[in-house]
Computed example of a mutant assay.
Amino acid sequence: MSALDGLRVIELCQVMAGPFCGQVLGDMGADVIKVEPPGTGDQTRVGMGQHAFRAVNRNKRSITLDLKQPGDVAVFHRLVETADVLTENFRPGVAARLSADYDTLRARNPRLIYASISGFGQTGPYAQRPGFDLIAQGAAGVMSVTGEPGGNPVKAGVPVSDLSAGLFCAVGILSALHARERTGEGQRIDTSLWEGALALGIWETAELWQTGVAPQPLGSAHRLTAPYQALRTRDGHVTVGGNNQKLWRRLCAVIGRPDLPEDPRFVTNPDRMAHRPELVAELEAAMVVRDTAEWVKALLEAGVPAGPILDYAQVVDDPQTRAREMVVEMEHPEAGTVRGLGIPIKLSATPGTIRRPAPLLGQHTDEILAELDGG
Rank of each mutant, 00 (worst) to 15 (best):
S2I: 03
L7M: 12
I10W: 06
L12W: 03
C21Q: 06
V24H: 10
L25S: 05
L25K: 06
P38E: 12
P38I: 02
P38V: 11
R45I: 15
V46T: 15
V46Y: 13
G49A: 09
Q50G: 01
H51Q: 11
H51G: 08
F53C: 09
N57V: 15
N59G: 09
T64S: 13
T64M: 10
T64D: 04
Q69F: 00
A74T: 15
V75S: 10
V75I: 13
F76Y: 01
F76R: 04
H77N: 09
H77F: 06
R78E: 11
R78Y: 13
T82Q: 15
L86N: 07
P92Q: 01
P92K: 09
P92M: 12
A96S: 07
S99N: 13
A107F: 03
N109V: 09
N109T: 05
N109G: 10
P110Q: 12
R111T: 01
L112T: 02
I113E: 10
I113N: 01
A115F: 08
S116N: 05
S118N: 08
F120D: 03
G121F: 09
G124W: 01
Y126P: 01
A127E: 12
F132Q: 00
F132P: 00
Q137A: 00
G138A: 04
M143F: 14
G147A: 04
E148D: 11
E148N: 08
P153F: 08
V158K: 01
V158T: 07
D162I: 09
D162P: 03
D162N: 06
A165H: 01
G166W: 09
G166L: 13
S175H: 04
L177V: 15
H178C: 03
A179M: 07
E185M: 05
Q187E: 15
L198I: 10
L200F: 10
I202P: 01
T205Y: 13
T205G: 00
T205D: 02
A206D: 04
A206R: 00
V213F: 01
V213S: 07
A214Y: 04
G219T: 02
A221P: 00
R223Y: 10
R232L: 11
D235R: 15
H237T: 05
T239H: 07
G241Q: 12
G242S: 14
N243M: 12
N244L: 11
N244F: 06
K246L: 09
L247N: 08
W248H: 13
R249Y: 08
L251R: 08
A253F: 02
R257A: 14
E262T: 01
V267N: 04
P270R: 00
A274N: 14
R276A: 06
R276V: 05
E278C: 06
V280G: 08
E282H: 07
E284P: 04
R290H: 07
A293G: 05
W295I: 10
L300T: 14
L300Q: 15
L300M: 12
G303Q: 02
Q314E: 15
D318K: 05
Q320C: 12
V328E: 02
E331G: 08
E334L: 15
G336P: 14
T337H: 03
R339Y: 08
G340K: 12
G342F: 10
P344T: 01
S348I: 06
A349G: 13
A349V: 02
T350S: 15
R355C: 07
R355K: 02
L360H: 08
H364M: 09
T365N: 02
T365M: 06
T365R: 00
D366R: 12
A370R: 11
E371T: 11
L372T: 13
D373H: 04
G374V: 11
